[in-house]
Each structure stands twice: as C-alpha cells, then as structure tokens.
Amino acid sequence: MSGIVSFKLVLLGESSVGKSSIALRFVKDQFDDFRESTIGAAFLTQTVRRDEDTTVKLEIWDTAGQERYKSLAPMYYRNAHCAIVVYDITEEESLEKAKGWIRELQRHADANIVIALVGNKLDLGDTRRMISTEDGAKYAESEGLMFMETSAKTPTNITELFDAITKKLPLDRGMGAAQKRQAGTNAAAATQQGRGTAPVQLNAAPPRQEDACGC
C-alpha cells in the first residue's frame, strides 16, 4: 500500500465556529478575520505525507453551519472516512450543536468513521472562554472521539489535528482507486433520481460505532 491514498473528510458544526477558517488554514495556510458564510458546502483538497511511502490526500467538504442547511448534510458526510466536528470555545451553545452532529454521525454515517471533536478559537481562550477544555475532553472521551483545541488564527494545533486524523485512518479503506467514489456518487445520484427522496432518509442506520478509539 503505497502512493496516494484518498480520504473523504467532512467539517461539521454550528455557524461561524470557524469550519471554513480551519479548512483554509490547513489547505492554504491563510486566515481572514472574517470569512463570508459558506452556502451549501465548499470543496477543498490537501495532501499530507503520512509516512515514508504514503501520501494521504484529504478531500474536504466544508459544510454550511446554519440549521436550515442541515438536511443537506448527509449529502456531504455520506461515505466520509473522517469528520471534524467543530465548536467555538467562546459559545456554549455551539458545543451542544456539536454533540447533535456527533449523534447524527454515529447513527447515520459510515460505521467506521473517525470523528474528531474540535474546540476552535483558542486564541480567545484567555478572555472569552465559555467552555473549559475539560468539558470538551470529557465528552469526547465518553464518546470515544479524538479531541483537540485549535486556533485557525494563530494558528495552533491545525496541522497537528490533521496529522492526528491522518494517522488514524486505516490505509486499506482509503480511496486508492476510482471505483469507490464512483460507486458513492452514483448511488447518491440514483437516490436523488428517485425524485424527492430526501437525502436524510437514505441511510438505514448503521450500528453504532463500538470500536472507536479512545484517544
């Protein structure tokens, strides 16, 4: 198993917690204090060297955070290998939303999906923090998720976050070849073609993730 292995990663979380900023920092090493809201979703890619012979290519879906776009989310997280669920450490509400996303992923996403819970805006941690590191970490541990606090602004822990995720991904499950994607999209398309079948209803709930790592 060498060469390029591709994985699909999805960013979820409440509006304006910094999903797009994390993606942009990781992909282009840029940061804007203000970014226009994401409508629907944005697609980015970045490659990470995992080890001597393996390069991992991350195919990133950066989704819209607003509640009203929620029904579209399955279109982006279906077949995803990993998900980063982001909350804003200065906004209590955002952790609750993140928990909601995690529950949804556990119910409807791929059973082996690697989930990372991320508390963003660490740069505001000293002044405006509302959610302690322990709270986030404890929840992540109880659910068997990866956990990290980041700042896309300074930047802190962004590369580390993606490195850690990359390490966690089983190489044999990546999309080394065309077929995987092909199958995925055609299935999605076929269901859409069923006119009006809501994407939400597509997935029979896979079994809850039991073998999650306890990192």
């Binding site: 409508i39 629907g40 979703a41 697609f43 579209l72 279109m75 994607r181 092909q182 995925g184 999209t185 055609n186 999605a188 398309a189 859409q192 073609q193």
Partner: peptide
C-alpha cells in the same frame, strides 16, 4: 454525472440558485 458532478447534487449548483447567482 460520471465524475460525480451532476448538477442535481448540491455541490456547486445549490449556491448558484440559492444566491440567485449573486455570488
């Protein structure tokens, strides 16, 4: 379609319509 980019998937077409092309 073959490349998974049929406009019925909400990848690029959704924003076009939801913003009435304003963006």
């Amino acid at each position: 379609d073959e490349h998974g980019l049929d406009p019925r998937l909400p990848y690029y077409s959704l924003r076009w319509l939801a913003c009435v092309y304003a963006t």
